[in-house]
Design a protein around this nucleic acid. Sequence first.
DNA 1: ATAGGGTTAG
Length: 724
Amino acid sequence: MISATTLSPPPTHLPSLPQTPPLSLIKTCKSMAQLKQIHSQTICTGLISNPIVPAQIIAFCCKHELGDMEYARMVFDTMPGPNHFVWNNMIKGYSRVGCPNSAVSMYCEMLERGVMPDEYTYPFLLKRFTRDTAVKCGRELHDHIVKLGFSSNVFVQNALIHLYSLSGEVSVARGVFDRSSKGDVVTWNVMISGYNRSKQFDESMKLFDEMERMRVLPSSITLVSVLSACSKLKDLNVGKRVHRYVKDLKIEPVRVLENALIDMYAACGDMDTALGIFDNMKSRDVISWTAIVTGFTNLGQVGLARNYFDKMPERDFVSWTAMIDGYLQVNRFKEVLSLFREMQAANIKPDEFTMVSILTACAHLGALELGEWIKAYIDKNEIKIDSFVGNALIDMYFNCGNVEKAIRIFNAMPHRDKISWTAVIFGLAINGYGEEALDMFSQMLKASITPDEVTCIGVLCACTHSGMVDKGKKFFARMTTQHGIEPNVAHYGCMVDLLGRAGHLKEAHEVIKNMPVKPNSIVWGSLLGACRVHRDEEMAEMAAQQILELEPENGAVYVLLCNIYAACNRWEKLHEVRKLMMDRGIKKTPGCSLIEMNGSVHEFVAGDQVHPQSKEIYSKLDEMSVDLKFAGYSPDTSEVFLDIGEEEKESAVYRHSEKLAIAFGLISSGPGVTIRIVKNLRMCVDCHYVAKLVSKVYNREVIVRDRTRFHHFRHGSCSCKDYW
DNA sequence: ATAGGGTTAG
């Protein structure tokens, strides 16, 4: 509502009004304050009764950058019979301020009051539609347009193409396009951006070619859209062609176009050209900088990306997310989390893209507390849980060992896609719920979701981790016939794992010998792992040799071989391998355990002394040793392959990183709190034994995620059933 | 008296 003060007389510094015709004044008017003064003058002089005057006042409010739609509506309501110029302007105004629903209401009112829309009405009305309004009103408005005979107007056609591509009906949009005259470059632009919107970039490219054939000259906007498609398709050839267009047609390289060029070159990995354009720009905005940052992150060059990120004059949530995602791509999870903290300190609001990156990092680190915090943040800020966020949450919970919450997210998701189902099958499998994983798979089939290669790996993985050899074999045999999926090297690897872990080493070897694809080091690695569990040194030697032929630098193979020789008491052979390792300069990957406590991740390596609470940790360890021995513990050093005495071996396993992490967990959390640890390698037998006893003696649940699976220790036993 | 199209991240 208008207040009395708004209609007060103009301040003295403005020219006096009555002498000047109000229409020309409105044309040069700069602000709402000025407009209100002009308005009040026209009321005083009675000029307002000329309908052109309120119409112009309304037009100002509807068109001007600073125009106020409430004021427009107030003036509008004083008009007895507004004509369609006025109605059109009101509709345009509501669209301009991003209120498509108000624009639609205005349009409906117009019809109710018997004023016929004209060909200007529809472009105004449709301009700022959202997906929702487009879905809701699109068809009906199209009907009106046809009935009123405006469907041959090119502006209306363009608006319709825009409308249908917004509502996701690109093929209907294409129908309108095909029936249009195609002489107008904007028609092409709208159609191309429609294809981009629905990620049909190849169609965008085809239209660009066809445009050339039909000799429609592209505008800089066409080129921006086509460059965007090139960048998504990583099509450097067409991208360069567009660049040549810009030069040949002497199209002014405005910033948006330069940004699109940078993005295209960066996406195609040509950073030299991208930087060449970037360096020569007159002015750069946040998009120019972000395009360079993502260019480097896509190449895995996070250091360079970070240099540019740090130099940015301003950063928005996209830039932060791009940089965060860069660290994620190269598995630098701790940097992901610390950059996220910086982002929060800078008061930049994350969106669902950011959330996915952070959750993925939490999943890798097993950082449940931070993951839970993110979940709470998502709920509190009403960030929508789309399938990307949902799947990331499922992954996070499973990878932190919280099966129950993972399932809860899955059950609450409105749209579960193939990825969601696959995530659940995998999650159940690695957490020791093999039967449940297979049950999920049947439910997935019942829900008519088609499994893919990855889903099949999940199913086989479930069988492996729960020792369901027959079910695994049956599934494998039916993969092609029932699900139409040809087994690839990863599936054969699963079969080797399945048979090998169950002790069928010969059969596993047969699978390798008979597989139609060349076995890779992972397949042989599965066999080698099985040889360790079942202490078959001969087969192990053969498998190790195969791997070393493929990957001579694979340190893990030497270590595994050492473990096996140690367990089989083959000391001479052990020495040979040890010497080979020394000669070839191969080092063992140090074992490392992560534990999250009060929101930060603590990292331990064997014999760690750098933790600030080191003293307390070691005295807790001594205390544990006494308590556990009382419960029957004696150290198992069978896998230690260092050439040292028994006592030293005991002291070596005593200082393993997961034991330090457990001790730290015990002293830094209250009774009954679950201790969650992530280990980068496989757990050793002694640590596995200790964890079982800890869960019994201290009545604590201990969850250890190792390289391939979870160990849930409860009441003295483990979910892996000592089978890992 | 009034019209339309574009760039960055999973």
